[in-house]
């Protein structure tokens, strides 16, 4: 058989709680990330991603408790990102029960940190999360630039060149988020995903813009991603993870349907 495409639900977590509201039915505590994780686990999620968006330094430790409680109940691979800046941050997340960590801003401000982290914990454990926007004008050759601070701050760094540099430094996987598509429900930026996926040797996760199940199919079939990440379509109950995986399988993508 063959390696299957992965569907990865992502939860934004702030101060230890799920943000964006929840429409899961029958949850004891809909704001508890662990309860959501259990639902995704039961629905056959191939991996789970937590993005910690806690702003206050005082509450930074809340994510470790969330990760530990999730690892106690769910036996699926877990990636945790948001505010990962030091080797000590990574070690704490891994000890709490994370399998992979994603590095975002720190990879932009200090690319050597990615190399240091990959040397210490192995490339397979280091995901570099790249937020970019399309900056080329109509009719020009496609060009994407890295943006930080939730998409507000341009950096002048070319996203494709940056992706290649991160793989050289030891990133074991790339999480590509299109900041102009994120939240728009119009689908992934397929050109961005495909350009980078075809250029690098490591797996690429498509992210940003999913509104329909066809978008997930496109991410793999047209974007050449090996995994697709989505937040709101699952979170608001538009589709279940199981529905998404069956739909992708029906459209010719090899999926795990155990």
């Amino acid at each position: 058989m063959t390696l299957k495409a992965r569907v990865i639900p992502c939860l934004d977590v702030k101060d230890g709680r799920v943000v964006k509201g929840v429409s899961f039915l029958n949850l004891v505590d809909a704001g508890d990330p662990v309860e959501s994780a259990k639902v995704y686990d039961a629905a056959g999620a191939d991996e789970l991603c937590f993005l910690d968006i806690t702003a206050s330094a005082d509450n930074r430790d809340t994510i470790f408790d969330v990760v530990a409680r999730t690892a106690d109940h769910c036996f699926m691979p877990l990636t945790v990102g948001g505010g990962v800046r030091t080797v000590a941050d990574i070690r704490k997340l891994l000890l709490a029960g994370a399998d992979k960590v994603s590095i975002n801003s720190a990879a932009v401000s200090n690319p050597d940190f990615v190399a240091e982290a990959a040397d210490k914990f192995g490339n397979q454990c280091i995901v570099v999360s790249i937020d970019s926007k399309k900056v080329s004008a109509e009719g020009e050759e496609d060009r994407w630039e890295i943006f930080t601070h939730g998409g507000r701050k341009p950096t002048g760094i070319d996203a494709v060149a940056f992706a290649e540099r991160m793989v050289e430094r030891g990133a074991g996987e790339l999480l590509l988020t299109s900041m102009d598509r994120d939240g728009q429900k119009g689908g992934y930026d397929i050109a961005l995903t495909r350009t980078i996926a075809d250029r690098v040797s490591v797996p690429v996760i498509a992210s940003g813009g999913v509104g329909t199940l066809d978008h997930l199919v496109e991410g793999v079939r047209d974007g050449h991603a090996t995994a697709v990440l989505a937040a709101s379509i699952f979170h608001f109950g538009t589709y279940t993870v199981g529905e998404a995986k069956r739909y992708m399988a029906e459209h010719g993508i090899a999926m795990r349907l155990d």
């Binding site: 058989m1 390696l3 191939d46 074991g172 797996p203 795990r256």
Partner: peptide
């Protein structure tokens, strides 16, 4: 076209 590392779910022979 296969990526290294292999990350994800596969069956066993």
């Amino acid at each position: 076209g296969l990526k290294i590392p292999q990350i994800g779910w596969n069956t066993l022979d």
